[in-house]
Design a protein around this nucleic acid. Structure first.
Length: 575
DNA sequence: GCCGTTTTCGGCCCGACTGTTTTCAGTCG
């Protein structure tokens, strides 16, 4: 059996969907492939493991007999015959054309069939020669737009990290609120759903006068270019490269519009379909029975109209939240205030930029009751790695500080490197004296999957290890994570009484959302840590909690929501 | 291609904006 991951199969399905669309197939058939791809991506476990365990893939939502067969085919042969067949009609290079804004399947099809355009170079040549404008449905403006987009393509940014978009979002909010007549301003879209990357900002505004809002919005100093402007919708490109879509709705439609523009698209489709089953039409202006408006001033009213309790934005991905809501089994998601401590922080003893005392006081100011000091222990790299002597000295300093400080307790810890063979750089005798031992990978990040997996499992076998640090190895933008069988890692963590970390640094946010959810299902507690290197870094915890919410975590699933005495009990591994 | 409180066929979410039309298709979210 080949080692195809769910992502690999999802990519094949998305390619099929793209090519089918260009081939003018039924839009519903196309959607089936996209839905299946999305299901696979959010599954949390590998389809090949389900197949190996004899569990039918048709149990998965949106996957019937045919697609189950294609998944199995892909897993065993690495290819899908139907896709190869499709390639005979539609060259795979046409997929790239779909990524050009303004070009959809119909136009790409026309370009291919009538001009023989098969790739971006062909397209550039055809547009430059003025041949594109001659096609039916195309014109001079479309041709120019294509040329502009091709030129801009190289420097085009895709999704940006949430923390880069946040200041721009807040600034935008403030400026829009200042416009006379504006009542409510909310940044909706994936930003409101708490995604850790942002493709654009969707801003919802309710206001008395529409013209003034549109004029002021498109005239903001941060605006580089206005790409669309109507009476209820406008799109602009900011100088920063961020795109902003503004939607204007009457105040009575606020709830329906907020729900609609928060998405996700897949979630919305499900809610509208539920509406249909209740004889209702759901759109951004409200919920309607015939011509009568029956709900829509609040989001709660929209959910209620289709028979659902309120679903918090972080869960609206059509990854099971609708079903959970119907069965009244929505999680009570963790909140920042539930965190009582932080188990991962550095000081000037290793690569941190603040002293023990400064970090302790900053943690207290961040509302925490305890903080584990976990400076680095490594074979090489980084300044002054911790060893037995330095850990003992730091421990004594912590004891003295704990006597002096009120409202915060420091715990003794270390972040110890995992060697390539799964051994740790400090001996068990040294680790055993500490309260918190985080075992982390900081080198050899591109080991083969099996080797990386077993490396992590061996590290957890050391009886003093309490926590596997940033287990997936994500480090953006360089790495989305290393090859690792997280399901196996989590099962092992459960068996040996080890916990896993959600490192809240914006570049990490690791465990990822899918694996947070899997950890919860497998009964492995997650520690939401700041990995602070400076006093300000405790603010990372906000992002960590948001991320955990998207991973369906409740306070009870999170190790550091426990009061100190309970935490101490949990940290003593009995295996 | 999937799915079932309209169940094994006949549906499948809904509206805004643009550019190219001359009443609307294509694209986007």
């Amino acid at each position: 059996m080949l080692r195809l991951s769910n992502d690999d199969v999802a990519r094949l399905f998305e390619e099929i969907a793209d090519l089918l669309e260009i081939d003018d197939a039924s839009p519903f058939r196309v959607r089936a492939y996209r839905t299946a791809a999305s299901t696979l991506r959010g599954l949390g476990r590998e389809a090949r493991d389900m197949v190996a365990a004899g569990e039918p893939l048709t149990d998965l939502p949106g996957i019937g007999k045919d697609l189950a067969g294609k998944i199995t085919e892909a897993l065993s042969t690495g290819r899908i015959d139907a896709l190869e067949t499709l390639h005979r009609d539609v060259p795979p290079s046409l997929e790239a054309l779909l990524r050009i804004p303004g070009l959809g399947p119909k136009r790409v099809r026309a370009l291919y069939q009538q001009l023989g355009v098969e790739n971006l170079d062909d397209l550039r040549a055809a547009a430059a020669a003025g041949r594109v404008r001659s096609l039916h449905g195309f014109g001079k403006k479309t041709e120019q737009r294509v040329l502009d987009q091709l030129a801009a393509q190289r420097e085009k940014k895709h999704r940006i990290p949430r923390h880069e978009a946040t200041p721009q979002a807040r600034d935008l909010e403030r400026r829009l609120r200042d416009i006379p007549g504006v009542e409510q301003v909310v940044i909706a879209g994936s930003f409101r759903r708490g995604r850790d990357t942002v493709g654009d900002l969707d801003v919802l505004v309710t206001a008395a006068s529409t013209d003034l809002v549109m004029a002021r919005f498109t005239g903001l100093p941060a605006v580089l270019e206005v790409t669309a402007r109507g009476t209820t919708r406008a799109s602009v490109l900011l100088r920063s490269g961020l795109q902003v879509d503004l939607r204007l709705v009457p105040p009575e439609s606020f709830g329906a519009a907020l729900h609609y523009f928060t998405g996700s698209k897949a979630h919305n489709v499900r809610v509208r379909r539920l509406g249909q089953q209740h004889g209702l039409k759901v759109n951004e202006y409200g919920v309607f029975r015939g011509g009568e408006r029956v709900a829509g001033d609040t989001e709660e009213s929209v959910f209620s109209a289709v028979g659902l309790p309120f679903i918090t934005p972080e869960l609206r991905e059509d990854q099971g939240e609708i079903e959970a809501a119907q069965q009244n089994r929505l999680p009570r998601l963790i909140e920042r205030g539930d965190l009582r401590g932080d188990l991962h922080a550095h000081t000037t003893a290793s690569d941190g930029r603040a002293s023990l005392r400064a970090m302790a006081e900053a943690a207290r100011a961040a509302g925490l009751e305890y903080l584990a000091i976990t400076d680095h222990a490594a074979d090489q790299g980084g300044p002054r790695p911790m060893d037995a002597r330095r850990l003992r000295e730091q421990g004594e300093a912590i004891d003295r500080l704990n006597e002096e400080l009120h409202g915060i307790t420091l715990l003794k810890g270390v972040e110890v490197d995992i060697r390539e063979d799964g051994s740790l750089v400090l001996p068990e005798t040294v680790l055993a004296r500490l309260d918190v031992v985080i075992a982390s990978v900081h080198n050899a990040t591109s080991l083969p999957r099996r080797q990386q997996t077993e490396r992590l499992m061996r590290a957890m076998d050391h009886p003093s290890v309490t926590l596997l640090g940033h287990p997936g190895g994500r480090f953006r933008p360089e790495r989305e994570g290393y090859a690792v069988d997280m399901e196996r890692v989590l099962r092992h963590a459960r068996e040996c009484g080890c916990f896993v970390e959600l490192d809240s640094q914006p570049r990490r946010l690791d465990l990822n959302e899918t694996y947070c959810r899997l950890a919860r299902e497998r009964g492995v507690l997650v520690a939401i840590d700041s990995d602070s290197h400076d006093r300000r870094d405790f603010a990372n915890l906000d992002g960590g909690v948001l991320h955990a919410r998207r991973g369906w975590l409740e306070a009870v699933d999170v190790l550091n929501t426990r009061p100190l005495h309970e935490l101490r009990r949990l940290l003593r591994r009995t295996h």
